[in-house]
Amino acid sequence: MPESLTLANLLDDAALLSLEHQLHLAEVLGDHDWNVDLREQRFEFTGSRPIACSRFHLLGTAAPSTGSWLWAWANPSGFPAPVTQASLTLRDFGHRYGIAELSSPEVPFSALPGSPAEPYLAAAVLTEAAKAVTGLWTSYGGDAGGGTRVAFLVEHPAFLLPPPEPARVVRVIQQALTDLHLSDHRRALYGYAVRRGLGAAFDANHTRLTLTGPAFTATADFDHLGRVHGVNATLGS
């Protein structure tokens, strides 16, 4: 990664690929519940399709009582090292690139982009950043009691994305542009294409990005502020 990097960059890097993974996770799990035993290092989904995660990573907790996020590595309760290792990786990454939100033990909600008031929104911000750093793209958040939200990265072969499918790629792009707050549209779309194994090329003026994949071509046009103002896709052979 470049020597200059911000939290906003990480959020853009994660946005679309994270969205696609979460859509896929919802399809895989269907109606479900979950349970975790941190000491025994066990995370399971129950319901129509029970799944015991092959690995999971505790990132941290967002508490309404303090209005802050606490990274797992800094939690005084103490947890097994394999469960908190990802949070330590993020701490070290934050120190390296000067991203205080990753390296500080506790992060006030007010210090995060948009100053989210709700714990689940604060947890979502730092979970997205964690994905861009770790390369682990599937997350799960739940109620830890008292309004506190806990966030995990979860792993299982069923959570891996299938090969890119044209209609799904177009859906992800359109939904991301509608529902997500992207600081840098060019960075977000280009990064998604590269990470998803699609072809990606800007024109000479960086006003158009062309994405290509199996039976799929899409062009995104950018306005003078760098925002996408139009996407045209062609599906089929």
Rank of each mutant, 00 (worst) to 15 (best):
T212N: 11
M1G: 15
T89M: 11
N75Q: 04
A124W: 11
A220C: 14
A130E: 06
P82H: 04
V28F: 13
V170C: 03
A74S: 14
I99W: 12
A167F: 06
A81R: 15
A188F: 04
G213W: 11
L10F: 03
N232T: 06
G236F: 10
D13I: 01
Q175D: 08
V169K: 08
R168D: 04
A193V: 00
L121I: 09
P105L: 02
E155H: 13
R168T: 14
G147S: 08
F93G: 09
H181C: 04
P64I: 09
A100P: 04
A130L: 06
Y190W: 03
H32C: 06
A215R: 15
M1P: 14
A220R: 06
G197T: 13
E155R: 01
N205H: 05
I99D: 05
G199F: 01
A74G: 05
P113V: 05
T46L: 05
L198S: 09
T210C: 07
A204L: 01
G142T: 15
D31G: 00
G60I: 05
L198K: 08
F202A: 07
T234H: 03
P105R: 06
E165D: 10
G146C: 00
G98A: 11
Q85P: 00
V170F: 13
D13E: 13
T178S: 14
G135D: 12
T89W: 04
P82R: 11
E20R: 12
A100E: 11
A72W: 05
G78D: 09
I99R: 15
A86G: 09
T134W: 01
A63Q: 12
W137K: 13
G145Y: 10
T66E: 14
D179Q: 13
T61Q: 10
L38A: 09
W137E: 08
T6K: 13
E44W: 07
G30W: 00
L180I: 00
V154H: 11
H185P: 05
R42D: 05
R186K: 14
P116Y: 10
P82L: 02
A188Y: 02
L5K: 10
V150M: 10
A72D: 01
E118S: 05
Q175Y: 08
Y97A: 02
I173K: 09
R39V: 10
S115M: 01
S87L: 05
T138W: 02
L235I: 06
A14K: 15
L126M: 06
L211F: 13
F222K: 10
T6H: 11
F152K: 01
G78T: 08
A144F: 10
G199D: 06
S48R: 12
D203W: 07
P105V: 02
A204W: 01
L23N: 12
A74T: 00
G199P: 05
E165V: 00
G78E: 08
E40M: 08
L160Q: 15
G67Y: 01
G147H: 01
R49P: 02
Q85E: 07
F56R: 13
W69A: 11
V133S: 03
D221H: 12
S68V: 04
S68R: 14
R208D: 04
G142D: 07
P157Y: 05
P214D: 12
H24D: 11
T207N: 10
